[in-house]
C-alpha cells in the first residue's frame, strides 16, 4: 500500500516564558494510505492539533521547534520552502477547522472565496473557476448552489458554512484532507450529515483523510484506522474494529468506559482518576502510570516502548496484552 502521508518521529517543542522548552508532541510516527481515513483521538492538550499544524507547516518557527520528517507524496515537507508549502496547502493538501465562521472571510461572498482559492492554485479563467466552484458547492450537497454562491458567510447556518469549507478544501482535488474537529461545533443531526459527506467524498475522490477528534463515536463512524494520543505521545494504534473490540492500552480502555453507552445504563461510569499531567513536569516512566489502575513499579520508573501486540496493532504499555491482567 502506498502512503500519501508518512510522518516519522515528529516532535514539537515550544519555548516557555522562562526560555525552557516544553515538548508537546513527542516522536509521533504514522502513515496514511490513499483513500484511507485515520482518526486521531485524545483529550485537550494531548497534542493532536499541534501535530496537524506541524504537518501542514503552519507553526511559527519563532516559537515552535519542530523535528522529524513529514513525507507527503514523496515530498519531504520539512525541507520545502515556505512558498512551495503555500502552493501545496489548499491544493494537494487541504485543511478543515472546527469553527467555519472564523475560517471564512465575512466581507466576501462564499463563491468569491472559493474562486479565489481555485485561481490561487490553478491557471483557470474567472468563468471556469466559477464553474468549478459551483461544482464544488454541488458536490457537498448545498441546496440551490447558484443562489448560495452570492451569499455572505453570515447568511449561512453552521452546517452550511462547514459545507462551504469542505467545498473549498475539495475545489483543487486534494490528496490529503486534514479535518480538525470538523463537527464538534455542530448539532447532532447536522453532524451526521457532515460525517456522511466526508465518507462519500473519500470514496469518490480517493483522498486520504486525517480526522482529529475527541469523540470516539465519530471515529467509529468514519475512520478505518485510529491513533490514540496521550500527553504528547501515541499510546495506541489499531484498525477501528480492533481498537473498539480489544483495546490494548489502559488509557483507551478508560476512555471507552467513561462514555455513557446507549445500549445499557450503568449506575456509574468508569472514571480515569486525576487529570492529564503537566507537560512541563511529566511523570517518570509511563506518562499514564499515575492514573492507571494496572501500574506497578516498572511502569512508574521506565517509559514503555511502543510494541506490536498483533499485526497492525501497537501499544505503549508494559502490561500488554491486557487480557492477562483479568484472566
Amino acid at each position: 500500500m502506498s502512503s500519501v502521508l508518512e510522518v516519522d518521529e515528529l516532535s514539537v517543542s515550544f519555548a516557555g516564558e522562562d526560555g525552557r522548552m516544553t515538548t508537546v508532541v513527542d516522536k509521533v510516527s504514522f502513515k496514511i494510505g490513499t483513500g484511507r481515513t485515520l482518526g486521531i483521538v485524545g483529550e485537550s492538550g494531548c497534542g493532536k492539533s499541534v501535530t496537524s499544524l506541524a504537518i501542514m507547516g503552519l507553526l511559527d518557527p519563532a516559537s515552535a521547534s519542530v523535528s522529524g520528517t513529514v513525507t507527503f507524496e514523496g515530498i519531504d515537507l520539512r525541507r520545502e520552502s515556505e512558498s512551495r508549502l503555500r502552493d501545496l496547502r489548499g491544493d494537494r493538501m487541504a485543511m478543515i477547522f472546527q469553527e467555519p465562521m472564523t475560517s471564512l472571510n465575512p466581507s466576501h461572498t462564499v463563491g468569491a472565496q472559493i474562486v479565489e482559492a481555485i485561481q490561487r492554485h490553478r491557471a483557470l479563467s474567472r468563468k471556469d473557476a466559477e464553474a468549478r466552484a459551483l461544482e464544488a458547492l454541488r458536490q457537498v450537497s448545498i441546496p440551490s448552489p447558484e443562489t448560495r454562491f452570492h451569499d455572505y458567510p453570515h447568511r449561512l447556518s453552521g452546517g452550511m458554512r462547514q459545507r462551504v469549507m469542505i467545498a473549498m478544501a475539495l475545489s483543487c482535488d486534494p490528496k490529503l484532507v486534514i479535518a480538525d474537529e470538523p463537527t464538534t461545533a455542530l448539532d447532532v443531526t447536522i453532524q451526521a450529515q457532515i460525517l456522511d459527506l466526508l465518507r462519500r467524498l473519500r470514496d469518490d475522490t480517493g483522498a486520504a483523510i486525517m480526522l482529529i477528534t475527541h469523540d470516539l463515536g465519530v471515529v467509529a463512524e468514519v475512520c478505518e484506522d485510529v491513533l490514540v494520543m496521550y500527553a504528547g505521545e501515541v499510546v495506541e494504534r489499531a484498525s477501528v474494529g480492533t481498537l473498539f473490540r480489544a483495546p490494548q492500552h489502559p488509557y483507551t480502555v478508560g476512555l471507552m468506559g467513561a462514555i455513557p453507552r446507549m445500549a445499557e445504563r450503568k449506575p456509574r461510569l468508569a472514571t480515569i482518576e486525576g487529570s492529564v499531567p503537566n507537560m512541563r513536569a511529566l511523570p517518570a516512566g509511563c506518562r499514564f502510570s499515575p492514573r492507571c489502575p494496572f501500574a506497578d513499579a516498572q511502569c512508574r520508573t521506565m517509559p514503555p516502548p511502543i510494541r506490536e501486540v498483533e499485526a497492525g496493532h501497537t501499544t505503549r504499555c508494559w502490561k500488554a496484552p491486557l487480557e492477562s491482567l483479568v484472566a
Binding site: R245, A246, P247, P250, V253, G254, M256, G257, A258, R261, M262, A263, R268, A270, T271, I272, E273, P293, F294, L322, E323, L325, V326
Partner: peptide, 24 residues
C-alpha cells in the same frame, strides 16, 4: 428494539473497564 445501540462489550473488556471503577 432498543433503536441504535452498541454491540455488547466482550467480558474481558468489561473486566478491564471495571478496574477503572470509582475509587473516590
Amino acid at each position: 428494539g432498543a433503536g441504535r445501540a452498541e454491540t455488547e462489550l466482550s467480558p474481558t473488556l468489561e473486566r478491564l473497564i471495571a478496574a477503572f471503577g470509582p475509587r473516590a
